[in-house]
Amino acid sequence: MTFKQYLPEGSSEGKAKMSLDHGATFGDILKILDIPIELPKIVIINGVIQISDEINARVLIDGDIVSVFPPVGGG
C-alpha cells in the first residue's frame, strides 16, 4: 500500500504544498486528501515522530512539514 493515490494534483516525488485555514489540524489534512483516518501509522511533523494518540487534533502552523506513512518495516 502507498499513499500515492491520495496526493493532490501538482505534487511530485510524493510531496505536495497545501494551503490550510488558520487553526487547521492534522486530521483536517486527512479529510481534505480523503485519506481514511485509520491508515496513517507513522506521522512525522518537522522531522519529529509523533507518538500521541491525539495526533489528529494537532494544530498545524505555517511552514510545518508533515510526513505520513502506512505501516512499514525492514532493516
Binding site: 500500500m1 510526513s67 506513512f69 502506512p70 512499514v72
Partner: peptide, 25 residues
Amino acid sequence: AGPVTSEALPAFGTPVLVNIVNECN
C-alpha cells in the same frame, strides 16, 4: 494480517524504510 509482513515488505522489500528514516532525520 500484519501490514508490514503482508504488504510493505512484499511490495518494496527492506528499502521501504529509506523515506521514513530520512524524514525522521
